[in-house]
Simulated scan of single mutants.
Amino acid sequence: MTTETPAEEQRVPGAVAERARAALGSLPRSEARVVQALLAHGSDVIRMSVSEIAAAAGTGVGTVVRACQSLGFKGFQDAKIALTQDLAPLVGERSPEHIDLGDRPDQVLAKLAASSGEALSRAPVSVDPKALGQAVELLRAAPRVLLLGVGTSSPLTQDMAYRLLTIGVSAEAPADVHVQHVRARLLRPGDVAIAVSHTGATRETVDAARGAKEAGAGIIAVTSYSTTPLTEVANVALVAGGLETRYRVEAMASRLAHLLVLDALLISLVLTDPGRSEAAQALAANVLAEHRF
Rank of each mutant, 00 (worst) to 15 (best):
residue 2 T to H: 13
residue 2 T to Y: 04
residue 4 E to K: 04
residue 10 Q to C: 07
residue 11 R to K: 12
residue 12 V to I: 07
residue 13 P to R: 11
residue 15 A to C: 07
residue 17 A to E: 07
residue 20 A to Y: 01
residue 20 A to F: 05
residue 21 R to G: 00
residue 27 L to K: 01
residue 28 P to Y: 10
residue 29 R to L: 08
residue 30 S to E: 03
residue 33 R to V: 00
residue 36 Q to A: 14
residue 39 L to E: 05
residue 43 S to L: 14
residue 43 S to H: 03
residue 45 V to D: 06
residue 52 E to H: 06
residue 55 A to H: 08
residue 60 G to A: 07
residue 64 V to L: 03
residue 64 V to N: 00
residue 64 V to I: 06
residue 66 R to L: 04
residue 67 A to E: 00
residue 68 C to S: 15
residue 69 Q to P: 00
residue 70 S to K: 02
residue 70 S to L: 12
residue 72 G to K: 09
residue 72 G to D: 06
residue 73 F to C: 12
residue 74 K to G: 05
residue 76 F to R: 02
residue 77 Q to G: 15
residue 82 A to F: 02
residue 83 L to H: 06
residue 85 Q to T: 03
residue 85 Q to G: 14
residue 85 Q to F: 06
residue 86 D to F: 09
residue 86 D to W: 08
residue 87 L to W: 02
residue 90 L to A: 13
residue 94 R to E: 13
residue 95 S to R: 06
residue 95 S to N: 11
residue 97 E to Y: 12
residue 99 I to C: 07
residue 102 G to M: 05
residue 109 L to I: 11
residue 109 L to F: 13
residue 109 L to N: 08
residue 111 K to M: 01
residue 117 G to N: 06
residue 118 E to Q: 12
residue 118 E to R: 14
residue 121 S to R: 10
residue 121 S to E: 07
residue 124 P to D: 09
residue 127 V to P: 02
residue 129 P to G: 09
residue 132 L to K: 12
residue 135 A to I: 04
residue 140 R to L: 12
residue 140 R to V: 03
residue 141 A to C: 13
residue 145 V to T: 04
residue 147 L to M: 08
residue 148 L to R: 00
residue 148 L to V: 15
residue 148 L to D: 00
residue 149 G to K: 00
residue 151 G to D: 11
residue 151 G to R: 07
residue 154 S to A: 13
residue 158 Q to N: 11
residue 158 Q to Y: 12
residue 162 Y to V: 12
residue 162 Y to D: 12
residue 165 L to S: 11
residue 166 T to P: 01
residue 167 I to M: 11
residue 169 V to K: 10
residue 170 S to R: 11
residue 171 A to Y: 02
residue 172 E to W: 03
residue 174 P to S: 06
residue 177 V to Y: 05
residue 178 H to N: 14
residue 178 H to M: 14
residue 180 Q to C: 09
residue 184 A to V: 09
residue 187 L to H: 04
residue 188 R to H: 07
residue 190 G to L: 05
residue 191 D to T: 10
residue 192 V to C: 04
residue 193 A to L: 02
residue 194 I to K: 00
residue 196 V to W: 00
residue 197 S to P: 00
residue 200 G to W: 05
residue 212 A to R: 01
residue 213 K to I: 09
residue 215 A to W: 06
residue 216 G to W: 11
residue 219 I to W: 00
residue 227 T to V: 10
residue 228 T to D: 03
residue 232 E to C: 15
residue 232 E to T: 08
residue 233 V to M: 12
residue 234 A to W: 01
residue 235 N to H: 10
residue 240 A to S: 07
residue 242 G to Q: 13
residue 244 E to G: 01
residue 251 A to H: 08
residue 262 L to Q: 15
residue 264 A to F: 11
residue 266 L to A: 02
residue 267 I to C: 12
residue 268 S to F: 13
residue 270 V to D: 03
residue 271 L to A: 15
residue 272 T to Y: 05
residue 273 D to W: 14
residue 273 D to T: 08
residue 275 G to V: 05
residue 277 S to L: 08
residue 279 A to L: 08
residue 283 L to I: 14
residue 284 A to W: 09
residue 287 V to Q: 09
residue 289 A to L: 08
residue 291 H to R: 09
residue 292 R to Y: 08
residue 293 F to L: 14
